[in-house]
Design a protein around this nucleic acid. Structure first.
Lengths: 215, 215
DNA sequence: ATCAAATGTGAATGATATTCATTTGTCAAC
DNA sequence: GTTGACAAATGAATATCATTCACATTTGAT
């Protein structure tokens, strides 16, 4: 009865709390270890050790190592999306919001040491980026289209392609196949994908870029 | 002495022939098995079995399973690139060559059952696509820029981003997250990335698409 | 025919994701 | 406060491969 009450009233029991703690601890530990050694080299042992749970426990929360990796990526994306959102909230030019967003995703991906290893599993990180940041990005594209700044029929499609292109660029920068200075042009290319003319895109990419709030 | 002669005269000895056969048999078997089960699920055992060589032999030719996978991908790309080249040779409109190329890469990636599993390792397939098809694609972009049809400062950068965007699109189609009918628009987006206006891009994407020669 | 070098071989190794039989913790009911 | 049934945690044991390596075979110059 009590349990039912809690469920109905959405009150968290002790075990619910522990479950939430464990789950989060595993994601955090996963992030820590995967960022340090890469997804493949990260062992479940080390992750469980760091999360301070038994080796078998992780499988009560995630079906596989890959699923854990996916949730790790999603958390990384969610946090970045919210930091970007905090800044673009005040923007007035609808064309600049998306442009600013992708600039910052690239900056994080190419600059932050912790991202580098995660990029090696492109399809996982691009998938997480699509799912988690998509709602923000697609909305931003849509608004810019409504304002007549962008021209694209299907913002979701453009975003899908953009996520992979962003990951590809970041990966190449990390591998030193592309100089980081190319970032502006990479942004211009991505803006071209949503129907912005080359000249306008360069204008957007060259504008000063406000700092993101700290983590 | 004889050996030296052969080397100098570029004549293949028996063992050279065997080596070439083995290497090729391993790549072919790798393609076969990886296409059937995916790169991760493909075992070296099964690949060696199919190639009819001992389990240890593969390591005389490739440093690791990942390196073998890379060569498998490169071969897939090389063959496709050459089939595309055979058709675009006769094109007169410099803007259409690259457009035709990416259309066909996407068609192969989304249609051919054998590609599907390979897409699951995006960064490997995108890397192979960049390296192997890059010389053709970058040349095509460059010529279209010279003709005033495309507008981009760095064709290599655009191609780098395009490879990942192509893989991302194809992956999403295989996962049924995007309808195959979206391909034209995906091509339009990619053309936007090389500075083609939306209207021109739609024109290019809608043109009839000659068939590729058979494999 | 003989030898040294190159190449092939697959049983053994090592690393680690995943499973599962047990133990431990939780909480509603009495 | 005790109990019992259920949920969750645990880590030793298992299973699966990639990779290695000691040895066998083939090659080709002499």
């Amino acid at each position: 009865m009590d349990r039912l009450m809690r469920t109905v009233q959405n009150v968290e029991s002790r075990s619910d709390r522990r479950k939430r703690r464990n789950r989060q601890a595993l994601i955090d530990a996963g992030y820590e270890v995967m960022a340090k050694k890469g997804i493949d080299a990260a062992t479940m042992s080390e992750i469980c050790e760091l999360a301070d749970v038994g080796l078998g426990t992780v499988y009560n929360y995630f079906a596989s190592k890959d699923e854990l990796a996916m949730y790790v990526m999603e958390q990384v994306m969610e946090r970045l999306a919210q930091r970007i959102e905090a800044v673009t909230n005040n923007f007035t030019d609808p064309g600049q919001v998306y442009a600013f967003g992708i600039r910052n995703v690239m900056k994080a991906a190419t600059t932050d040491q912790r991202w580098r290893w995660l990029l090696r599993r492109s399809e996982v990180i691009a998938g997480a980026m699509y799912r988690v940041m998509g709602p923000y990005a697609i909305r931003d594209i849509r608004q810019a289209v409504a304002a007549g700044r962008y021209h694209t029929e299907d913002p979701a499609l453009a975003w899908r392609q953009a996520t992979h292109a962003i990951v590809g660029f970041s990966l190449a920068v990390c591998d030193k196949d592309i100089l980081p200075g190319k970032m502006d042009e990479a942004v211009v290319n991505l803006l071209g994908m949503v129907g912005v003319s080359r000249a306008e895109a360069w204008d957007l990419a060259k504008r000063p870029c406000p700092e993101l709030p700290g983590e």
